[in-house]
């Protein structure tokens, strides 16, 4: 990992680019027909600040955020645990692989969003179905990565542990599991963003609160400003989640970061 150095040229370009973006946006929405459909950046920022104390629907913006986050984290958390167990089982045991892989391969190509209707019919439009949809989004990614990770454990390391007199149980916890962690983490990162997407879709289709509901509400009431505010917040949170995952990964997998 190279340390980030402060690069003045980069910063200047970035500032100029972003300034250009906003000026162009402002220009288009002030002087051209685009203004009939699209709000200018100032209106969006204004609504963004207002939304922190003026409720949209039943909650202020942070309330919606927390609702969505809770759904994601519950679904993601449960699915990650299950996915790791199933993935490693399939990767280490031929029996588990023979039993579960065909079913997994059958269901895997169905995107989590396509499950929405069935899950809603099954569980209603309450919290359970949101958790499950987020879970489906995370589960396939984590399972797949844990599976490949467990398959690619260096047999020499396992042999080496045997030579050192390690019991089979210890080999699993002290060799196989740590060997897979980087791969599992890679899966979890993708899984978290898929979950984040799934919760938006689920909320857009049927909910009374949450970020997805917020932008859908904006769309239904022809309120583009609200849609844009929602997108900004959703993007920021998505970024935050990704950064958080990377930070945890750096903590846990520092041994895996290659020199240079």
């Amino acid at each position: 990992m190279k340390k980030k150095r402060f690069d003045p040229e980069k910063t200047i370009y970035a500032v100029v680019a972003i300034a250009c973006f906003f000026v162009l946006w402002w220009f288009l929405t002030t002087f051209t027909p685009v203004k009939n459909t699209t709000p200018d950046p100032i209106a969006v920022l204004k609504l963004l600040f207002e939304s922190f104390y003026t409720p949209i629907g039943s909650k202020v913006i942070t309330g919606h955020l927390l609702v969505s986050l809770r759904r994601v984290l519950v679904g993601f958390g449960v699915a990650t645990v299950l996915g790791i167990i199933l993935g490693i089982a399939m990767g280490t045991s031929k029996w588990a692989s023979a039993i579960f892989k065909p079913i997994f391969e059958l269901l895997r190509p169905i995107p989590p969003i396509a499950w929405i209707s069935l899950v809603i019919l099954f569980f209603g439009i309450g919290e359970t179905s949101k958790y499950i949809l987020c879970g489906i989004g995370a589960f396939t990614n984590v399972t797949l990565n844990a599976y490949t990770g467990a398959q690619n454990v260096d047999p020499e390391l396992v042999g080496c542990a045997r030579m050192l007199g390690t019991s089979e149980r210890d080999i699993f916890f002290r060799v196989v599991l740590p060997s897979c962690t980087p791969q599992i983490f890679a899966g979890m990162q993708v899984a978290l963003s898929t979950s984040w997407m799934a919760v938006l879709a689920a909320e857009m289709v049927g909910a009374q609160e949450g970020c997805g509901w917020m932008i859908q509400r904006g769309s239904d009431t022809l309120n583009i400003t609200l849609v844009m505010v929602g997108m900004i917040v959703i993007g920021l949170v998505g970024m935050l989640l990704a950064t958080l995952m990377r930070a945890i990964e750096r903590r846990l997998c520092s041994w895996n970061i290659m020199e240079g």
Binding site: D154, E156, L157, G159, C160, A161, R174, P178, N256
Partner: peptide
């Protein structure tokens, strides 16, 4: 071992 086979995570 020639390849050392160190546990990379230890």
């Amino acid at each position: 071992y020639q390849t050392t086979a160190l546990f990379p995570f230890c």
